[in-house]
């Protein structure tokens, strides 16, 4: 009988130990998730800023300015997101901001594809859209991090030219938030 008790004791202890360790594992993962989500919330302050949002419209009209008004002159998306056939983005936007016309510029100025439309989405939907390879232009997480931290058009947001508000995080803070978000599981909800 004693043996039975001792086995039972061992089992119970094991169960307890296993439970404890499982609890520890579970605890660690939820912590990561929280971290990632917090980073995502930070990212959103930039993503939802006019500097980013203006080029991620849900219709065919780019937006302009800190008040996100519809781009003047009836500018439209076109087939390749670089404007209509004879009304191209590069009619006015060149590789750098123009100090005289004050027209903003960065290499390959264009609208985000319609799949990457953020306007009108909830935070969660924005996150899902960013992660969905079908809509984000086939980017895996690594490529996504690269886009958000190194793409010249994205980086333009921190050098937008005279009279345009900067995003609430500086570029280093945003890059860190993106990396933390990705490293901790790219959680969006």
């Amino acid at each position: 009988m004693k043996k039975i008790y001792s086995i039972a004791f061992l089992v119970i202890v094991s169960i307890i130990l296993i439970s404890i360790s499982s609890f520890q594992i579970q605890n660690e993962s939820s912590l990561k998730k929280e971290k990632s989500l917090a980073s995502f919330k930070q990212m959103l302050t930039v993503i939802k800023h006019p500097r980013c949002m203006n080029c991620h419209p849900s219709d065919d009209s780019p937006r302009q300015g800190d008040d996100r008004h519809v781009h003047l002159f009836n500018v439209q998306r076109g087939n390749d997101n670089e404007g209509l056939a004879a009304m191209r983005c590069n009619a006015c936007h060149q590789k750098t901001n123009n100090p005289y016309s004050n027209v903003p510029g960065a290499p390959k100025w264009h609208l985000a594809p319609i799949g990457m439309a953020w306007q009108g989405l909830t935070d969660e939907q924005i996150g899902e859209s960013i992660l969905n390879e079908k809509t984000n232009g086939g980017k895996n997480l690594e490529e996504l991090v690269h886009h958000m931290t190194e793409d010249t058009l994205v980086l333009w947001a921190w050098n937008p030219g005279k009279g345009r508000a900067l995003p609430p995080l500086n570029q280093a803070q945003f890059a860190k938030a993106v990396k933390d978000w990705a490293e901790n599981g790219a959680v969006v909800k």
């Binding site: 009304m87 191209r88 590069n90 009619a91 936007h93 060149q94 750098t96 123009n98 005289y100 016309s101």
Partner: peptide
């Protein structure tokens, strides 16, 4: 391409 030359460095 048609370009607005006042904004072309």
């Amino acid at each position: 391409d048609a370009v607005r030359s006042c904004s072309f460095a």
